[in-house]
Design a protein around this nucleic acid. Sequence first.
DNA 1: TTTGGCATGTAATCCGTTACATGATTAG
DNA 2: CTAATCATGTAACGGATTACATGCCAAA
Lengths: 186, 186
Amino acid sequence: MGSKQRQSTSEIAILGVLSLHESLSGYDIREFIGASISHFWNESFGQIYPILARLKRQKLVTVVVDKDSSRDRKLYSITEDGRQKVSQWIAEKAQPDRPRSELLLKVFLGSQVHPDVVIEHLESLAESCAAQAAIFQQIEREVRRLDSGKRTLPYSIVSIRAGLRLAQARAKWAREAIVIIRKGAE
Amino acid sequence: MGSKQRQSTSEIAILGVLSLHESLSGYDIREFIGASISHFWNESFGQIYPILARLKRQKLVTVVVDKDSSRDRKLYSITEDGRQKVSQWIAEKAQPDRPRSELLLKVFLGSQVHPDVVIEHLESLAESCAAQAAIFQQIEREVRRLDSGKRTLPYSIVSIRAGLRLAQARAKWAREAIVIIRKGAE
DNA sequence: TTTGGCATGTAATCCGTTACATGATTAG
DNA sequence: CTAATCATGTAACGGATTACATGCCAAA
């Protein structure tokens, strides 16, 4: 029967990015991901280019070579079939993410080292998360200003605030963790 | 020219688990991970057994075959060298984690589908995170009761509370996200 | 007696990053 | 002129899950 093996999440992600734009090059896709969703999703060139070729073979995207540009640019656009794949996938239940955190592992194993070692990790985390949170708030303001009126706005805002809330929670946790560990070390 | 290629994080994780115990079998290691740190770390048997063999070759662990047990059990114990590796690694700066969240991606692409589709995802997330948070609180109480006095206690507590704080933050975010999206859809 | 849990391992496969390879354009 | 950025791709490698393969023991 059909040669339709299931789409990988990376394929869907790239297709999804394409669904938000008229047309993009592989390079553009990487740029866009880095600038907008890198706090919860990433794709490298090593994935992007081969995937783009596959999507083309499956007619989920089309390509045209850019004429206006001085450079060698292949501009990809999503097809109707591609759009359907995307909206179908969005409606499916999300796979639970299996996170991996080196930092948490270090903290969990903390009894093996001097408490100060762990506390230093936590202090630097609290700091960097607070800084990150500030950046997310900055970005939110920027996006509200620039994308005002676009129908994608609420989804952008909500994605940014996911990063914000996470950073805040991490900072809060780090600070409370320091207190608990100090008490335990007495 | 020692044959010392750098340790992978999975190797360190397994070594770290071993550092908290007298001796464990591969099966025990999987069990322990599943019961205590699965919310931020996981290892499958496909990793554990080959890694255990490698660690043995590097003299970071020793093995004895269990006699008391009726079953075929190889009990692994960490060596002094192994302990050093662990504490050395803990002290190093943690690599930032690169998270990947299907759910966030679905939300980010939400403009491609009917708002209700995304809102349903968010409602179910808010629910499951609230439930998870309650479980973490339950576990915290249990661990305080059972591990009271152990020097690993504060590190266990803090790890559990990382899960708790994260679940709470996610639930909070999901609820606020629903409001934002509903407003945007008017 | 048969199902589920204990127990160890290997092989296939997939996924993803990094490194490699190449080259044009543009800004300093 | 030369370094950074734009631009596309392939190859090597490593890491991790899943499936496969095997078998014993205990409880229902």
